[in-house]
Design a protein around this nucleic acid. Structure first.
Length: 424
RNA sequence: GGAGAGGUGGCUGAGUGGUCGAAAGCGGCGGUCUUGAAAACCGUUGAGGGUUUGUAGCCCUCCCAGGGUUCGAAUCCCUGCCUCUCCGCCA
């Protein structure tokens, strides 16, 4: 959510900023609603004030043993008026709030213009695509040949976009997850956590998935409904919902492995082959809760933590700064890390690292107490995949394949694989 | 699933329907004392919002949430959520 004061005082600025995302804000309509709100709120509060004053007088008169009937008569229809005003104000405020909840974050100045991924800005490349002297197989062929990756079985048990992994391929995915968690805990100072995979609507509104993106989520038929988490970002960031964090505890750094569930509505034709786009996948997520003046630096640091996993695994990747049109709803600035997939002959997203500034914090009422002012201030929230384990598994299989269709296990994973060096 | 108890400020914990946003204690902050610290003592200390150039003043809201009764609700009534205890069941 954007600062309501900013919307009130600098509406044209907001409109210009949001236009970068191709989001069109009807400034005139908003201004009108805001004007009505102001009138209604003043009116309502005046009526409440009168009610309070008169009730106090009645109390005092009664205590003195006076006849209070005339006073009671005088306030006869005050209550009605006040209730009516309160109702109108509540309606008006909820109308405004609905609009506010639908407005995306304001982009950082450094975000390049552009409407889609074509305009993303490549920042850096690391590693070289492996120089195979044979035609590269994709992970579906490799996985099938190694007999541990079965999409038909996934479809039988659940539906399309599910997979069953078995044997050493299943173990390899688990090894990747363990390796990532250990690295972030030991080397990068994150705190591991375990969280609910089903969350309530308030949590999803806090991080920005609701009310606007319900079609991307799986809803569980419960009253009130639960939703399967689309990312650990949701439960982990909600740790600080309605919390005022002590200054000494800042920054908070969490790492969390969870399955993620996405309906992929609107992506029916895309990436239908293989494990690239599944309804369920494993991910290790990094979340940071920081002071506002630290979030830029934290964004670089967190992205670096995700990069270090790719580097330790020896996977070639590039780092991309997303353009205005490609940056997510809640984010002010996002880096994508794209890993080289020999089977596709292209770089594909394996991590997305975002600075949400105070956008989520305002929805979450997530604050910290600034010792300098003694007052609560909104935190800044950040997160990034460190990394998407399913896609990392794919990347390992494809980049470490041999002519025979075997897969060499990267050094750093061998301790997690009981010393195994090759899948065959 | 059955039976019972309860949800008040950072924490503990009071609160006959009438200046209660709320006693007291702890904690925090500031000060006195001290070479320094501790102890003691004094003071101070919730959050959100409106108006406004305003971190000034004035005002509104908030004692789990949502309704209701009343001139007036932390206090009374209803519903929901959550927590705790016991029994049953279960990983």
């Amino acid at each position: 959510m954007l600062d309501p004061r900013l919307l009130r005082n600098e509406l044209d600025y907001v409109k210009t900023q949001l236009a970068r995302r191709n989001f069109s804000l009807d400034a005139e309509a908003y201004r009108e609603l805001e004007e009505q709100r102001k009138q209604l709120q003043i009116e309502t509060q005046e009526l409440q004030n009168e009610r309070n004053t008169r009730s106090r007088d009645i109390g005092q008169a009664k205590a003195r043993g006076e006849d209070i009937q005339p006073l009671l008569d005088a306030v006869q229809d005050l209550g009605e008026q006040m209730k009516a005003a309160e109702t109108r104000l509540a309606d008006e405020q909820s109308r405004l709030q609905q609009i506010q909840l639908g407005l995306p974050n304001i982009l950082d100045d450094s975000v390049p213009d552009g409407k889609d991924e074509q305009a993303n800005l490549e920042i850096s490349r690391w590693g070289e695509p492996p120089p195979f002297d044979f035609p590269a197989r994709d992970h579906v062929d490799l996985g099938t040949q190694l007999s541990g990756m079965d999409f038909e079985l996934g479809a039988k048990i659940a539906s399309a976009r599910f997979v069953v992994l078995q044997g050493n391929i299943a173990r390899l995915q688990r090894a990747l997850i363990q390796f990532m968690l250990d690295t972030h805990i030991v080397e990068h100072g994150y705190r591991e956590c375990y969280v609910p995979f089903l969350v309530n609507a308030a949590s999803l509104q806090g991080t920005g998935q609701l009310p606007k993106f319900e079609q991307d989520l799986f809803r569980v038929d419960n009253d009130p409904p639960f939703y399967l988490i689309p990312t650990a970002e949701v439960p982990v960031t909600n740790i600080v919902r309605d919390v005022i964090v002590d200054a000494q505890q800042m920054p908070l750094k969490y790492v969390c492995h969870t399955p993620c569930f996405r309906s992929e509505a609107g992506a029916y034709g895309r990436d239908v082959r293989g494990m690239i786009r599944q309804h369920q996948f494993e991910k290790v997520e990094l979340v940071q809760i920081v002071r506002h003046e630290d979030s830029q630096e934290a964004h670089e640091e967190l992205t670096g933590h995700a990069e270090s996993i790719l580097q330790k695994l020896g996977l070639p990747y590039r780092k991309v700064l997303l353009c205005a049109g490609d940056t997510g709803f809640s984010s002010a600035r996002t880096y994508d890390l794209e890993v080289w997939l020999p089977g596709q002959g292209q770089y594909r997203e394996i991590s997305s690292c975002s600075n949400f500034t105070d956008f989520q914090a305002r929805r979450l009422q997530a604050r910290w107490r600034n010792p300098e002012t003694g007052k609560p201030e909104l935190v800044h929230t950040l997160n990034g995949s460190g990394l998407a384990a399913g896609r990392t598994l794919i990347a390992v299989l494809e980049n470490y394949q041999t002519r025979e269709g075997h897969v060499v296990i990267p050094e750093v994973l061998r301790p997690y694989m009981g010393g195994l060096t090759i899948l065959q």
